[in-house]
Lab assay of single mutants.
Amino acid sequence: KLNEKEKELCQMVRLVPGAYLEYKSALLNECNKQGGLRLAQARALIKIDVNKTRKIYDFLIREGYI
């Protein structure tokens, strides 16, 4: 299910792929509902370490998901 970049992200932030996909889905759904997504909203949405949230958020922006 994951592409190579997503696999690298999961290894870097030490997330299991299932958890990453869950977080990605939640962030994309919220982004679609709101018409955009700020980091503060992402942090409130997924209750994990803020540094991990930041890396996931930055990755999703860089890859054009949000």
Rank of each mutant, 00 (worst) to 15 (best):
I46G: 10
A44P: 03
Y23S: 03
R14S: 14
R14M: 04
E4G: 05
C10I: 11
G36S: 10
K24G: 00
I66D: 06
N29L: 07
N32R: 14
E8Y: 04
L2Q: 06
G64D: 07
L39Y: 11
A26G: 02
Y20A: 02
L9Y: 04
I48E: 15
E6D: 01
I48W: 07
L37F: 04
L37H: 04
C10Q: 00
R38H: 13
R43P: 06
D58I: 00
G36L: 07
K47Q: 11
E8A: 13
A19K: 15
M12H: 14
L37I: 09
E63W: 03
L28Q: 12
L28Y: 05
A42L: 06
V13N: 07
G35K: 07
L28I: 15
R14E: 15
G64L: 01
Y23L: 09
Y20F: 07
L37R: 03
Y57W: 08
R62M: 08
A44L: 01
E63S: 07
Q11V: 05
Y23T: 04
A40E: 15
L39R: 05
P17R: 03
E8I: 06
R62N: 12
K24C: 02
S25W: 09
R43G: 08
L2S: 01
R62P: 00
R38Q: 13
E6H: 01
F59M: 02
Y20K: 01
A40T: 13
L37M: 09
L60M: 13
P17I: 00
L2K: 00
G64C: 02
M12W: 05
L39N: 07
V13R: 03
A26F: 05
C10H: 00
A40L: 04
T53P: 03
G35V: 03
F59S: 02
A44N: 14
S25M: 12
Y65E: 12
D58G: 04
I46D: 06
T53M: 10
I61Y: 10
I66M: 13
A44K: 13
E6A: 03
R14N: 15
L37V: 07
I61D: 04
Y65L: 15
E63R: 04
R14P: 10
C10F: 01
A40N: 11
R54S: 14
R43T: 14
L28F: 06
E4N: 12
T53L: 12
G35Y: 01
S25E: 14
Y65D: 13
K47P: 15
L60K: 03
I46L: 15
P17S: 01
L60Y: 01
G18L: 10
I56Q: 00
K47E: 08
K24T: 01
L39G: 06
I56H: 02
K5L: 05
Q34T: 13
R43Q: 15
I56M: 05
V13F: 08
E22R: 13
M12R: 14
N29K: 13
K1L: 13
L28G: 04
Y20P: 03
S25G: 08
Y57K: 06
L2E: 01
V50G: 10
L45W: 01
Q41N: 08
N32I: 11
G36N: 07
D58H: 08
K47L: 03
I48L: 15
T53V: 15
E6C: 01
Y57R: 07
L21K: 06
R38I: 09
R14Y: 05
L27M: 11
Y20L: 02
Y65C: 11
A42P: 03
I61G: 06
G18A: 15
A26N: 08
Y65I: 14
Q11E: 12
I66A: 07
K55P: 10
G18Q: 14
C31L: 06
D58C: 02
L28W: 08
L28H: 02
L2M: 08
L45K: 08
L60G: 04
D58K: 08
K1A: 09
A19N: 10
L2A: 04
I61L: 15
K33G: 07
E22D: 07
I48Q: 14
L2F: 01
L37C: 06
N29S: 12
N3D: 13
K1I: 10
K55M: 14
K33D: 08
T53S: 10
L45P: 05
I46A: 11
Q41H: 08
N3A: 05
L28C: 12
Q41Y: 04
A42N: 02
K47S: 10
G35M: 05
E4T: 09
E6T: 00
I66G: 02
D49R: 02
